[in-house]
Design a protein around this nucleic acid. Structure first.
Lengths: 254, 254
DNA sequence: TTTTCTTTGTGTAAAATTTACGCATTAAAA
DNA sequence: TTTTAATGCGTAAATTTTACACAAAGAAAA
């Protein structure tokens, strides 16, 4: 299906695209998932177009699955990018030539590099559960640390920036972690996630008190062993209470 | 220009529209500006389409000016509506027939009532400064109290709901009032604005202390006279400090 | 086996913020 | 002149946030 672009586009919105910033958390860092276009060294966010009979939210899920192999992830729309020249930021002639060399001349005619408005979504996934799988357009699909993200095609660097801002805003007003951490985790691990997202440090005793006051966590009778120090307890989110706190909204004030 | 829809659409994005929820504050109530389509009793938000050489933000301003006569207002994108059937919620056959009777059969063919994604903006305006002026498509352009808003065309009721949520969210994290109140206002007037937007009551003494602690207001040597009580002082926002507080972000915690 | 090093678990006092509330004053209306 | 209703100003109590110390655990080093 992806192989015949023209045919696909007859069933899709041409003037609207959709791009996903996929966040993962690994080794104390936030990572994003990027794709490298086949035959080029141009990186971009996984994106695509909305089908005529498909909602934007459904499209976000489908596109993420098709382009990266991810399934059933937490997705949140955060901003729609409507600048006139957003599609000509980076695609230098060189890249276009490489794309044409790979996909054949005229393959993208009237489809890519035209005026398109793009809906931005961010996704939160458990890093270890993810097996990034490139699609037919893509040579490579892999995680990048936020700090190392290269110059991306189009306005995708700006998209990541805005996605991060939206994620931070979300983290200040809702519980976070259920979609980013493994089922069981230690308090220091959760704290590191918060510190990474909000980009600041917390006193571990005060952090524990505050997080536990939300009543969304349960401490297990297990500990994480192996490290050269006292074994920390494992915790897990109580889904119902986590969702409830998310619906009500909390204010993470520390 | 509006008179020849087909010609206009050659220069515009067909699959993307843009709708504005215009908020005003009057007599202690939030109001929204609605349009009634010529020859019908169908009400909707002022909306339109983005030109090919125009950013979404620019389009929002232009559309608002063309459709309501408003100029240079505070505009904020808040959500993009991408449901499949959002354009068929309300337009019963009856309405379509009336529109055809007014504008001529086929006038909207292939333009309205097709799959369109709509970018939602909200606007904040000084109620008294506004002279709502209907455009060529519109019989009537007037303010409605939020509580009285009728069933609107398309998904515009949902748009207003989401716009209000976004406005509330904004008010909790930024100073608000500069775009909604006249230049000079009293403390009780500002308090009522906050109470209306956030839908709760405040103790007037604590409210004054908190608002003044942000250091964005200056008290004038004038008072509002005429009421059967002690004359309250007039205040005005210090624009630089207001903007600064808006950029930094404040947390209105009361 | 013992010592060292690092990290975890727990509690309390001080500081800051938020909330509750009282009283004198003002201005129009009765 | 009196009454009524709202404003200006300030303080005490309650709550929340912040700062901080020491004992215990577990692997690694000696």
């Amino acid at each position: 299906m992806e192989h015949n672009l023209k045919e696909f586009f007859d069933k899709a919105l041409k003037e609207v695209s959709l791009d996903c910033t996929v966040f993962g958390f690994h080794e104390g860092e936030l990572k994003v998932l990027l794709l490298r276009w086949k035959g080029t060294d141009g990186w971009s966010l996984p994106g695509g177009h909305i089908l005529l009979d498909e909602s934007a939210d459904d499209a976000a899920n489908r596109i993420l699955t098709q382009r990266t192999g991810l399934n059933d992830v937490y997705l949140q729309q955060f901003y729609t990018f409507g600048n006139v020249n957003r599609y000509t930021y980076h695609p230098e002639k060189e890249l276009l030539e490489k794309l044409e060399a790979t996909f054949g001349k005229g393959f993208f005619d009237g489809i890519i590099f035209r005026r398109v408005v793009s809906i931005g979504y961010y996704a939160l996934v458990e890093f270890d559960q993810v097996q990034p799988t490139p699609d037919w357009f893509t040579d490579e699909c892999r995680w990048w640390s936020l700090a190392d993200v290269p110059n991306l095609l189009f306005d995708h660097n700006e998209m990541i920036e805005r996605a991060l801002k939206a994620l931070r805003q979300h983290a200040r007003n809702h519980p976070i972690g259920y979609n980013l951490l493994p089922e069981k985790f230690t308090m220091p691990e959760l704290q590191r996630l918060y510190e990474t997202i909000l980009d600041r440090q917390f006193d571990r005793r005060n952090f524990q008190k505050l997080i536990m006051s939300y009543d969304i966590l349960e401490r297990l009778d297990e500990k994480r062993v192996g490290a050269a120090n006292k074994s920390p307890y494992l915790y897990r989110f109580v889904k119902e209470k986590y969702d409830q706190a998310g619906a009500t909204g909390i204010s993470f004030s520390m």
